[in-house]
Design a protein around this nucleic acid. Sequence first.
DNA 1: GGGATAATTCACTGACTGTTGAATTACTTG
DNA 2: CAAGTAATTCAACAGTCAGTGAATTATCCC
Lengths: 204, 204
Amino acid sequence: MTTSNDATPARRRGRRPAGEDTRTALVAAARAVFAESGYDGATVRAIAAKAGVDAAMVNHWFGGKEGLFAQAILNVPFDIREVIEAVTRDGPHNMGENIVRTFVTRWDGAGGEFFVALIRSVTTHPEALHTLKSVLINRIFSTVAEATGSDQPGLRASLCATQIIGLGMARYVAGLEPVASADVETLVPAIAPTLQRYLTGDIG
Amino acid sequence: MTTSNDATPARRRGRRPAGEDTRTALVAAARAVFAESGYDGATVRAIAAKAGVDAAMVNHWFGGKEGLFAQAILNVPFDIREVIEAVTRDGPHNMGENIVRTFVTRWDGAGGEFFVALIRSVTTHPEALHTLKSVLINRIFSTVAEATGSDQPGLRASLCATQIIGLGMARYVAGLEPVASADVETLVPAIAPTLQRYLTGDIG
DNA sequence: GGGATAATTCACTGACTGTTGAATTACTTG
DNA sequence: CAAGTAATTCAACAGTCAGTGAATTATCCC
């Protein structure tokens, strides 16, 4: 047995050599773990382990689990105006399709962890619920619904939210097949007409 | 200060007088607390407190938190065939409306806690996820979709599930207005066409 | 280069969790 | 009515969690 070349490097104490940004690593690890376990289920130790640092770093950099959650999840890491632009770009006639395409594409990509973490944490974390409401309803869907000029924009916006939240739950949280594994080109013709009707069609 | 007539009666030890069924009280309390906090968030002590008994009763009657959850939530407390009958009763043409009406009416009534508890626990409890899949997809919506004789019954069933889960999340978990407070007669004309198209319409 | 400062790990604490066994009281059966 | 049994509470335990403070090491500035 040699001195200390095990699988666990038994990281030395003290400041590490420069070049490794633990703050960024913690945020990335937090997004992944919060997305997988939700706020309560995620432990600070698991996040720190994934980032390859000690759990005390969470306190040092973010003041605690709560602060890390606020930084990594509640602080929306994408440009909302860009999403609105992508949805409304082709006029009121194509909003349904653009919504499905935009959300599924982003969820499947790197930014998806943020949204899954938010949905998964809504159960236990009040601020997560507030952010979900704020982003999805008050900003995105309300703006889009008002852009169509239809009546009852508030009801239309929250109807859109039901379908999008349900799609996110089914596909990413519950893993309901075949929706969970379907590609975008299958989901668009299936779900886009729903959102289109919620925005510009007859709802009662 | 008198002897012992405080707000907390300081319940005496030992067997209580007959007539009070703590087993039933625990199941009812469990449904309420699991619905509000999910499996992980709910504590055995909180459930016992709501039922007005000691936490040790959970172990005595159900073998532990897990057993109580299985009894109160996983053991579906309603007749699935009755739901299917209520949905399919008026033929394939009215299934969309019947689904919305049946689910919202039951959720708003006493049986709602069961479903909310299930949805809220899906995040952390694997058995809850299995039960949700089993009941909603494999039993209810698959049967209904196959009854229509349409193509792709599997995809159609899971599409229905996305909309119903999203409605449940928005209305009961997230409390998204105005959907959260809307009455059934507002929701039916808005959402029924979506489910009707998922079951018998063009989905791609 | 040397002192101040920042970053990191470690060992620990206090709070809360589900669960257990003993003690206590009511009901049940002969 | 007496003995046995079932139900209930209480106190305590082990496990896990987030958070804290001291010790240790690299970097930065002069």
